[in-house]
């Protein structure tokens, strides 16, 4: 049993030391995606903040958001993710509008 605890402790130490050695950052997490669709200028001015918030709260829950994708598949992606992540229809609309302002 001793051995198990040693391994578990090692693992916890392995992860726990990482945040400690990395400098404390006060910059907020950047949206991980840069869709080729919509680049930051329009996105920041988007009147609808809900889409951005929902994107950030949902789209990197399960995986890294893609580096970019063509606008003509954005509807397909968001519909696919609505089903996979059980998002509401309103979430789907808001996120799509954020991706294609």
């Amino acid at each position: 049993m001793m051995k198990h605890w040693t391994l578990l402790t090692l693992g916890v130490v392995y992860l726990a030391t990482l945040p400690l050695i990395s400098q404390d950052s006060n910059s907020s997490a950047k949206p991980p995606v840069k869709p080729r669709v919509t680049v930051s200028a329009n996105r920041n001015e988007s009147p609808d903040g809900n889409g951005e918030r929902k994107f950030q709260q949902n789209c990197s829950r399960c995986h890294q958001a893609p580096e970019g994708f063509p606008p003509r598949i954005s509807g397909t992606i968001v519909r696919h993710m609505r089903v996979r992540a059980s998002l509401s229809a309103q979430d789907e609309r808001d996120i799509l509008r954020f991706l294609n302002p």
């Binding site: 606008p71 003509r72 598949i73 954005s74 509807g75 397909t76 992606i77 519909r79 799509l96 294609n100």
Partner: peptide
């Protein structure tokens, strides 16, 4: 399909 709904 409409513009954003191209199959992927």
């Amino acid at each position: 399909a409409i513009a954003q709904d191209t199959p992927l």
